[in-house]
Design a protein around this nucleic acid. Structure first.
Lengths: 111, 111
DNA sequence: TGACATAATGTCTAATCTGACATATCTTCT
DNA sequence: AGAAGATATGTCAGATTAGACATTATGTCA
């Protein structure tokens, strides 16, 4: 496992359980979490820029306030599909989303 | 609806039903299909570059031959989540995937 | 402080998605 | 033609994810 992996997961709010389960987290899973968290941040920024509440945003994209909260939190119960759908429905372009994903996992200081 | 939308959907192999249902397809749905199809192509290219069969590829990413076939076909029953998971598990970087998504929906001749 | 808006968390049932399997349809050989 | 390998298609039971709702927490005013 790479240096700082567990810390990174925990910063992102993930329950990684004991060391045993954690060792089972593959690099692929890590990368996917990075993508999820990046999209989650992009979604929150987008909504905040619109200056609307989670409830209002939820109505516009056809979801619920609680699910929007979970989306923005990068909750494991939210699929990347839903994040993409919400971003696009709210007006993000594929190009914007592509850039977000391309930058996923990079150290924010270097981005 | 934008010009050529239905034709585009049909080229991608989607059953769009009658005109009524088709009119219900929003621009957001179109954009998501573009993303799915782009990722599907990227996955096929990746596997072909590796010179392995769908069955072999399936084992490596923890799926089945039939599902890999559906992934590469951009079948509606395949989630974007699964496409991303398979790409990353097979070694694609977030940056590569980001570029693929950013180019989604663009006219191939211009890309 | 209390009232009010907003955001977070937990939990349901319904809907969607998955791997697996069977089977059919190519492709590429001899 | 026919055997063999690869790919496509259809289906299904089990797993995952969805919106919805209730509840709790966190502001943010007067």
């Amino acid at each position: 496992m790479k240096k700082g992996k567990k810390e990174k997961l925990e910063r992102a709010g993930w329950v990684v359980g004991g060391a045993e389960e954690f060792l089972d987290l593959s690099d692929a899973e890590m990368a996917l979490i990075d993508v999820r968290v990046s999209l989650a941040k992009a979604l929150r920024h987008r909504r905040q820029k619109m200056k609307i509440s989670q409830a209002t945003f939820a109505k516009r994209v056809g979801s619920s306030q609680s699910r929007v909260a979970k989306m923005e939190a990068g909750d494991p119960s939210v699929s990347i599909d839903l994040l993409l759908r919400s971003l696009i429905t709210s007006g993000s372009s594929a190009e914007e989303i592509g850039r977000v994903i391309a930058a996923a996992g990079l150290d924010p200081a270097t981005v």
